[in-house]
Structures are given as C-alpha cells and as structure tokens.
Simulated scan of single mutants.
Amino acid sequence: MRETRWVEKHDAVLTFLDTLSCLPVVLETISESSESRGSNTFSFLHATPSSEFLVSVVVLAEVFGLTLALARKLQAEYLDVLEAMKLVEATLASLIEQRYKSTDTFKKMF
C-alpha cells in the first residue's frame, strides 16, 4: 500500500490554480474529440466557470498554502514530535486568525 503524499496534493492544487485559465480551452478541445464520448468532459467544461467552483479552488489553495509547511514536516522521514506539535499549533493559530479576519481574507482572495 502506498503512503499518502500530502505535499503532492498541495502541489497539485496550486498547479491546478495556476493553469486554471487554460482549462476551458483544453476541455473544449477534449469535448469536441470523437474519443471523449461518454466522458464527463462536457460537464467539467460547464462546471469550471461557476462561481462555486472558482471560489472553492481559491479557498482550497489558500488553506493548502497555510498547511504546506506542516504537511512537509509530518511527511519527513525523521519526525521530531515536539517540533511538529509547535508547527501544528502555529498552523492552527494561522487558520484561526484567517477565520477571525474572514472579511479581509476573502477580500484579498477575490
């Protein structure tokens, strides 16, 4: 069984966000292809410009940006538990601060 690689998931979300502007063109090309019959490409093409999807991706990227250092630390080959706990507490404090300042946080994201 393969280990969960959270850093890879962080990188995938951030890469996806960086390439989001190209996604409609790629999905349009795929949906017009004769090989894409029966696929979900058409659904994805129409879901990606929705505000719910875009806000979700941006918020997820923001949260993953805050938790990336923690994910790296927890996946390290050798883990210092006390150092990891300090990082957990610092990450939690950052998330609480983001929630406390939610109006400013969302203004920055938008």
Rank of each mutant, 00 (worst) to 15 (best):
L74F: 15
V7S: 03
L17A: 06
E52K: 15
T41L: 04
D11S: 08
V58T: 01
F106V: 09
L45N: 00
R2Q: 05
R37L: 01
A76V: 02
L79N: 04
S50Q: 14
A90W: 11
L95G: 04
Q98Y: 12
L87R: 09
V63W: 03
V26S: 10
E35W: 11
T41Q: 08
Q98C: 08
L68Q: 10
Y78C: 10
V58Q: 01
K9G: 10
E89H: 10
S31G: 04
C22N: 11
L27T: 00
S31P: 15
A84Y: 08
E83M: 12
L17P: 01
V59W: 10
T67Q: 07
S56N: 13
F53D: 06
M1Q: 07
M109V: 13
L23H: 02
P24E: 00
V57E: 00
T4D: 01
E77F: 14
T105E: 02
S21M: 05
W6H: 11
V13S: 00
D104H: 14
T19P: 01
H10R: 15
K86N: 06
G65T: 04
S31N: 08
T19M: 12
S56H: 13
Q75Y: 07
V63Q: 04
V55H: 13
M85P: 10
T103Q: 14
L27I: 00
A12K: 15
S51Q: 13
A12H: 15
A69Q: 14
S36G: 09
L70F: 02
L66N: 10
S94Q: 12
A71E: 02
S43N: 14
S102A: 08
T103G: 07
F110Q: 11
S102H: 15
G65V: 01
P49W: 14
S34H: 13
T91M: 06
E62C: 08
E8L: 05
T41Y: 06
S56F: 13
S31V: 04
V25P: 00
S56T: 13
S31H: 12
K101W: 09
L66V: 09
T105D: 02
V63H: 06
A69Y: 06
E97V: 04
A69R: 15
L23D: 01
E28V: 01
S31W: 12
W6G: 07
R37K: 14
A47T: 05
K108T: 09
L23F: 07
F44D: 04
R5H: 15
S34V: 05
A61S: 05
Y78N: 10
E97Q: 14
F42P: 07
A90G: 05
T91G: 05
A71S: 13
T105N: 03
D80T: 11
L74Y: 12
E35K: 15
V57F: 00
G38H: 13
I30P: 01
S50I: 03
D80R: 12
A47Q: 08
S33W: 06
A76C: 10
S43T: 05
L74D: 07
A90C: 10
T41W: 05
M1S: 09
A76K: 09
E83V: 11
T91E: 04
T67G: 11
L14S: 12
T67P: 06
S50Y: 04
G65D: 02
V58R: 01
L17D: 01
V58D: 00
R72K: 15
T29G: 09
G38K: 15
L95S: 03
K9L: 03
V57C: 00
T103N: 08
S43C: 06
V59M: 13
N40Y: 10
E3G: 10
S36C: 05
V26K: 11
E28A: 03
H46Q: 02
S43F: 06
